[in-house]
Amino acid sequence: MSSLHLEFDVAGNNFVSAGSASDEVKKTLKMLGVDPVAVRKVAIAMYEGEINMVIHAGGGKASVDIDTDKVKIVLADEGPGIPDISLAMKDGYSTAPDAIRDLGFGAGMGLPNMKKYTDEMHIDSTVGVGTTVTMVVNLR
């Protein structure tokens, strides 16, 4: 089966480059002729996840596997971890400091949107070690 693997380094606290990995993935999916609805789902989910790594975890790594039937996105960081995942998943929950809110982030809608726009989502997190978010968007 044909598949494509892409990897990106996501720099921490760099708001200029934030979103560039998801942008690259979006471009690739379009060139592959993936259905626009699926492209949009991947774009939204991956963008939110990427921004979370930038804001909350000082950066990390994104890896994306594109298959004929699905796109799998793994976002792994070595940040502070999430103590209570179900609380973090709630609409509007955010620990973002004021400085970040001033930039227009921190509405606490990132994780809920990632869940909403993907077919599978799993968070693995250990406080003091890091967080890995795995998301799958089905292509058919």
């Binding site: 060139m31 592959l32 993936v34």
Partner: peptide, 23 residues
């Protein structure tokens, strides 16, 4: 109409192979 000017191939598997070659 939407235009597929950037699409590598109409066959998804072929498109993936081409994308790999591009990388």
């Amino acid at each position: 109409e939407a235009k597929d000017v950037y699409k590598l191939d109409s066959d998804f598997s072929v498109a993936i192979e081409k994308m790999r070659a591009i990388e």
